[in-house]
Design a protein around this nucleic acid. Structure first.
Lengths: 223, 223
DNA sequence: TCTTCATAACTGACCAGTCAGTTATTAACA
DNA sequence: TGTTAATAACTGACTGGTCAGTTATGAAGA
């Protein structure tokens, strides 16, 4: 029987392409999705590979282990935002409170709208099992983030704009609601039929409160 | 050879005893330890059994699955404290702020000193994989805890003691630092050589801030 | 004696990580 | 401008280990 069957069109698309430099980002993006959905332990690399349009073996051409892939995901999601925040705080002159406001609204926006909001949850969940990951996150993210706020507070106190508050405790009190919002959105939001967490409202209330707490003139009616 | 060898002393401890009613608590306590150390996914039931001084099969005489054991752990750690908080809030008459102070110090003490502090971390970590666990926790713990604070705030606002704050946002802003402390202590504390989180100092600052935020007379110099 | 509580050896599913082989791409040469 | 040899990117079946859950057996207690 001669080969008369019209062979599926001339094109013959290749089964795959070599794309050495696009792969890592694509894999990291896919891994971010899967880790966010399942958590680290329950995430299957087969699934990450499928989402990235690649085979499991390929993951191991670019990342030596599941752990290292996890770290790459965290780096990719956090570091750009952290650098932006540092730049914002460093560039500003004049009164500190408006800078603080801008920082809080920026983070709130990230928390409310981006996938990066799942990172804290993932790190919290796995900190016990990956001490070096916890140390990395503590050193590269938390310490730096706290540093930005702490120096802003110190500047405000020195200039007389702020009351002389306890800096370390206050930094934590500023950050906690944002962190909790990030965790909440990715753990409990949309349960039962509760209304979803209103991040903007929370942040505006938080900023109002901080005005009362930090500024020397108690906020509502300056004399 | 007749059986003349003096058999290892009269005692002959039984290899095991039947202790139907003591077992469940012992197993739950052991599971709490292991889950706290490893997280849910990485915790091995073999290890839980060993810590409880029992075999793995025995776990299944009392709990149908790892999931159900997890839920039992959460119930045992949280519900008594929650009931205590509800009682404290319900019994109090007179001004609301002192009640709020007592509640916060009580929770802070739990966070700083008990194993129950690891529960939020565990639930946060596994919420995605166990939607029904998340729903259970949301319904039985979070909603009830929020309810206690919300009605306290409402009473304070109604009586004129508190400013008319946004209740829902404020409840979250009150809780967030405590939650973050619990998570922090069980994820990052003792890293690098940082000093450990000073929970009492944090809570006292928090209470001072809340005084400024909630009370009508701005807190520092009562007339 | 018979029932209940407990054991420990066992099973089966699952999955991170490996590797022998396949295919796209490029370089060298006609 | 083809043809071919060499290489680097990629695949997917396989392995070894782990662990939740099961079960055959036996000891304790009534």
């Amino acid at each position: 029987m001669p080969d008369r069957v019209p062979r599926a069109e001339p094109e013959a698309l290749p089964r795959w392409r070599r794309r050495k430099d696009a792969r890592p980002q694509e894999i990291v993006a896919a891994a971010m999705d899967i880790f966010a959905e399942r958590g680290f332990a329950a995430a299957k690399l087969e699934e990450v590979a499928a989402r990235a349009g690649v085979s499991k073996g390929t993951l191991y051409l670019y990342f030596p282990s599941k752990d290292e892939l996890f770290k790459a995901v965290i780096r990719a999601a956090i570091l750009p935002n952290l650098e932006q925040a540092e730049a914002l705080a460093a560039a500003a002159a004049g009164p500190c409170f408006p800078v603080l406001e801008r920082l809080l609204r920026m983070v709130a926006h990230l928390v409310a709208t981006t996938r990066a909001a799942t990172i804290p949850r993932l790190v919290i969940a796995e900190a016990g099992n990956f001490p070096d990951l916890a140390a990395f996150y503590h050193r590269e993210v938390i310490r730096r983030g706290f540093g930005v706020l702490a120096s802003l507070l110190q500047r405000g106190i020195a200039s007389g704009e702020f009351r002389p508050v306890a800096v370390d405790s206050t930094v934590r009190l500023i950050v906690a609601p944002l962190l909790m919002s990030a965790v909440w959105r990715t753990s409990f939001d949309g349960l039962d039929g509760e209304p979803p967490l209103d991040v903007p409202a929370l942040v505006e209330t938080h900023i109002d409160n901080l005005r009362r707490v930090l500024l020397r003139d108690a906020g509502e009616t300056t004399p």
